[in-house]
C-alpha cells in the first residue's frame, strides 16, 4: 500500500533539477519573456480600458485597478500550472528526462521537488516582468505591492503542486486538458477576478473560498495592490501554506507511484 503522505526524502540536489530547467529557460529566453510582458497589456486594454468605460467603479476603485491584481494572480496560476502539467509531462513521458536523472545519485522525490520549485520560479519570473508593466499605468500601490514578488513564489508553488498531481494521474497528455478546462478556466472566471465574489450566491462564495486556490491568491494580491492589507491576509496565507504543503507531498508520492515500480 502506497502512503500518499509520506514525507519526501530531499537534499540540496533538488537544485540541480531546478538548474537544468533554468538552463533550458535561458536558451529560449526571448520566447519566455514575451507573454508575461504582453498579456497584461492586452487584458488591460480590452477589459480595463475597453469594458471598464461602461463600469463606473467597483468597491470604490476603477475597473482597471480592480482587475490589475487579478491579472497578476492569474499569471501566477497559469505560469506554474502549465509548466507542471504539459511541460512536465513532456519531460517525464516523451523526453524521459526523469529516467535519465534518476540514473544518477538523485532520487525521484528530488526530481519532482525540483520541478515544483521550477514551476514556482516561473510564476516568480513572470510576476517580476509583469509588475512594472502594470505599475506603469499607475494601477497598483507602491511600495507595498513589491511584496507580491516573494508571494508569487509561494502562490506558484501552490499551483505547481496541484498541477503535478494531475500530471501524475493523467493517462496521456491529452487528458491534461480536463484540469485545464474544468479547474483552471472556472478559477479564472469565478475567483473574484473580474467581478467581486460578493455578487455570487452565498454557496458559490463558500465553494470558491474552500476549493478554488485562485480565490485566496487574488484576495492576497488585491489587498496589496490597493494598499489595504488587513488581518484577512493571514487567513489567505494560512490556507495557501496548508494546501501547498499537502499537495506538494501528495504530488511527490503520486509521481513516485507512477514512475517507480
Amino acid at each position: 500500500m502506497v502512503n500518499y503522505l509520506q514525507i519526501p526524502v530531499l537534499s540540496r540536489r533538488v537544485m540541480k533539477v531546478w538548474l537544468r530547467n533554468w538552463d533550458v529557460f535561458l536558451k529560449t529566453y526571448k520566447v519566455n519573456f514575451l507573454p508575461p510582458f504582453l498579456e497584461p497589456l492586452l487584458y488591460l486594454f480590452a477589459l480595463g480600458f475597453g469594458l471598464g468605460t461602461f463600469i463606473a467603479d467597483i468597491q470604490g476603485v476603477s475597473y482597471a485597478r480592480f482587475i490589475a491584481p487579478a491579472l497578476i494572480a492569474i499569471s501566477i496560476m497559469n505560469s506554474s500550472f502549465f509548466e507542471c502539467t504539459f511541460s512536465s509531462y513532456v519531460r517525464m513521458y516523451y523526453q524521459k528526462t526523469y529516467d535519465a536523472i534518476i540514473s544518477t545519485p538523485l532520487n525521484i522525490d528530488e526530481v519532482i521537488a525540483g520541478e515544483l520549485l521550477w514551476g514556482a520560479t516561473r510564476s516568480l519570473i513572470n510576476t517580476i516582468i509583469m509588475l512594472p508593466v502594470i505599475a506603469a499605468f499607475g494601477l497598483i500601490e507602491l511600495p507595498v505591492s513589491l511584496l507580491i514578488i516573494p508571494f508569487s513564489f509561494l502562490g506558484g508553488l501552490l499551483f505547481a503542486s496541484v498541477a503535478m498531481c494531475f500530471t501524475a494521474i493523467s493517462p496521456n497528455i491529452t487528458a491534461l486538458n480536463y484540469p485545464a478546462f474544468l479547474f483552471v478556466t472556472p478559477m479564472f472566471l469565478f475567483s473574484g477576478t473580474f467581478f467581486p465574489l460578493s455578487v455570487l450566491p452565498q454557496q458559490v462564495q463558500y465553494f470558491a473560498l474552500t476549493v478554488l486556490p485562485l480565490t485566496h491568491v487574488v484576495m492576497f494580491v488585491r489587498s496589496l495592490t490597493l494598499g489595504t492589507p488587513t488581518v484577512h491576509l493571514l487567513f489567505n496565507l494560512a490556507w495557501i501554506v496548508v494546501v501547498t504543503t499537502l499537495f506538494f507531498v501528495l504530488s511527490v508520492n503520486l509521481m513516485k507511484k507512477r514512475l517507480i515500480n
Binding site: 538552463d23 523526453q95 529516467d99 538523485l106
Partner: peptide
C-alpha cells in the same frame, strides 16, 4: 539505457555538462 533518453533541449556538449552536475 535501452531507450534513448538524451536531453533534446540541449546540445551534445551541454548534455554532458548538465549530466555531470548531477
Amino acid at each position: 539505457p535501452q531507450e534513448t533518453n538524451l536531453d533534446p533541449d540541449f546540445s551534445v556538449y551541454e548534455n554532458m555538462m548538465v549530466y555531470s552536475r548531477y
